[in-house]
Design a protein around this nucleic acid. Structure first.
Lengths: 108, 108
DNA sequence: TCCATATTTCCAGTATTATCGAATTATTGC
DNA sequence: GCAATAATTCGATAATACTGGAAATATGGA
C-alpha cells in the first residue's frame, strides 16, 4: 500500500461516526448490513450516513451490493488488512521489537 | 485504547506531511531528530512543522525533549502499538481470520 | 547583558470536511 | 403507469483543519 492510500484509509477511519460504522460492519461479518439498519443503529440521518459510507467506500474499507430495494454494506477485509500491513511495516523499520503485537492472543 | 483516542491517533496520521514525519521518526529510532532537521528533510516551513508536531504529540504518537537550544522529537512506541492493538482487536470481532497479519515475516 | 540560534505561538486567510433537509434516482408490487 | 419504499445526490451552511509570515519565547555563549 502506498502512503497516499494509507492516508485515505486513515482519514476515513478518523471520524467517530465512521469508525463506529466500520466496527458495526466488522461484527456484521459477511452478511453485511443494510444502509437503513446502519442509520437506525448509529442514529444518524440518512443523508449524513450516505456521506460517510461513501468515504469508507472510496478508501476501500467497505463495499456495497444492491439487494432489492435496499443496499447492503459490508467490510472489505483486504482494505483494513493492507492498512495494518502498511502501519506494521513502517513500525518495523529499524525497530523490530515494536512488531510484537498481540495478534495471536487476539485470535485465540 | 478507547475509540476516542483511536480517532485522535488516526486523525494525527491521516495527513501526508504528518505520516511522513512519523515515518521519519520511526527510522530515526531512539536518537530521535531535532525539529530543524525534520523541517529540512520534509521541506516544510517551521511554523507549519510545529503545528503538525503538536498534533502528533497530542495524539500520543511522538514525544519531545529539549536538547540545549534545539528540541528533539522521537516516536512513542506505546502510541502506535496501542493504535494497532485497537484496530487488530476490532478486526478480530467475529472474523478471526483477518488477524493473520504478517507481523512475524516483518520482523525477521 | 546582548546577540545569535532554535523553536513555538499568534493570527488571519484559505481550504477542506461535516451536516442534513429537500429533491432525485432506483426498485418492487399492484 | 403509479404509489410506496430505500437510498443517494444536491445545495446551502456550519465547523474544523491547514498554512505560513511575523512576533514571541527559550537557550547558550561572548
Amino acid at each position: 500500500m502506498e502512503q497516499q492510500s494509507a492516508v485515505a484509509a486513515l482519514a476515513a477511519l478518523a471520524h467517530d461516526a465512521r469508525l463506529g460504522i466500520f466496527r458495526l460492519l466488522v461484527v456484521a461479518g459477511n452478511e453485511g448490513l443494510g444502509a437503513g439498519m446502519i442509520a437506525e443503529r448509529m442514529e444518524i440521518p440518512k443523508a449524513t450516513l450516505s456521506f460517510h459510507l461513501k468515504e469508507l467506500n472510496h478508501a476501500g474499507l467497505i463495499e456495497s451490493t444492491r439487494d432489492g430495494r435496499s443496499i447492503t454494506y459490508s467490510m472489505r477485509p483486504e482494505g483494513i488488512r493492507s492498512l495494518l500491513e502498511f502501519l506494521t511495516r513502517d513500525c518495523c523499520q529499524g525497530r523490530p521489537e515494536l512488531c510484537a503485537l498481540p495478534t495471536t492472543d487476539c485470535c485465540q
